[in-house]
Write a protein that binds this DNA or RNA. Structure first.
Lengths: 166, 166
DNA sequence: CCGTTTCGTTCGTCAATCTAACTAATACAG
DNA sequence: CTGTATTAGTTAGATTGACGAACGAAACGG
């Protein structure tokens, strides 16, 4: 408190935590709006974005950073709700293709963002140089945090939904 | 792809997602190192940082953004491991003080950084103006995300551990 | 004193996650 | 080919975190 130079490391960590909290809540809201849980929505989003609207459990597990068993459970629930369907692969019959259904696509694209819009709109309202600055900063922080964790990146949850909106 | 100005919004969202992923994994590791689950560690950290090393379940629930019932369950587990103890408050006998024990304090302060150090070290290696820039950017993003969610902020998980290290 | 509010716990439920064990299919080495 | 190893996915069982509803105990306000 009496510190004349408020510790920047602390400040950065505090801000990070705020970001995490907000995003967590945001995801819950988003999923709820689509009538799903966050994890289920994530599966659906990944599948939806694939070229043919299909993905293997293995790929899902890798991309989400969870075990295959977890993916099985999630897919089970989505199948029960007719959001996706399982199909045996012809090329390698060990593999299963998890394919999104029309209903699943509808659920993904209908998730009516609220907070999401909030962020995107705020961001897009910024001046060009500010946007560039933020991107640079975020990427820098990301690099500092996950330098080791090579795969990580490409889930995109948020972005693709946004694209659906247009 | 052919877009001449790579979409900055997308870039920022991708970076954000990387940050989230990395932090999530980081927290898991941290907790594991302390022999606890992330949620349990969070409770312990909040309690540890209070002046008298105590907090009421109510306060914990509010600060963590979960229900009191959840806090009860978490505290149960910490009590079972001798990390905290419950004491009836004298001033208001409806209240319970959750007090950290020596063992709990040891667990909190012993969580051996690894990844954590990585971020902190990277951050602290930056030039002063760069640090300032990052903090400003992070806070801006946080503000854009949680403008609505007034309470949120002050859990700090990470920061306090870091302080323990010195 | 009595009704209301507040605090915490208990109970039942459910989602997400893990590990370990198992089945089925493919791959590869002789 | 045959047989072993590897890979993909599921099943089973457990734990954790989370919630809401119901409840008991204490405090507070008339």
């Amino acid at each position: 408190m009496a510190d004349p130079t408020p510790d920047r490391t602390d400040q950065s960590l505090i801000a990070l935590r705020r970001i995490l909290r907000a995003t967590e809540l945001f995801e819950r809201k988003l999923a709820q709006a689509a009538g799903l849980t966050p994890a289920q929505l994530r599966v659906l989003q990944i599948v939806a974005k694939k070229d043919h609207g299909t993905a293997t459990p293995k790929a899902l597990a890798t991309q989400m950073g969870v075990s295959q068993a977890t993916v099985t459970a999630l897919v089970d629930k989505l199948v029960a709700r007719d959001m996706v369907a399982r199909h045996r692969s012809d090329v390698d019959r060990r593999q299963t293709d998890v394919a999104i259904t029309d209903k699943g696509r509808a659920a993904v694209s209908s998730s009516p963002d609220a907070l999401q819009q909030k962020y995107v709109k705020s961001f897009e309202a910024l001046m060009d140089w500010e946007q560039a600055q933020l991107v640079a900063s975020l990427e820098r922080v990301a690099a500092m945090l996950d330098a080791h964790e090579i795969d990580a990146s490409p889930v995109l949850t948020i972005r693709d939904i946004r694209q659906e909106d247009y």
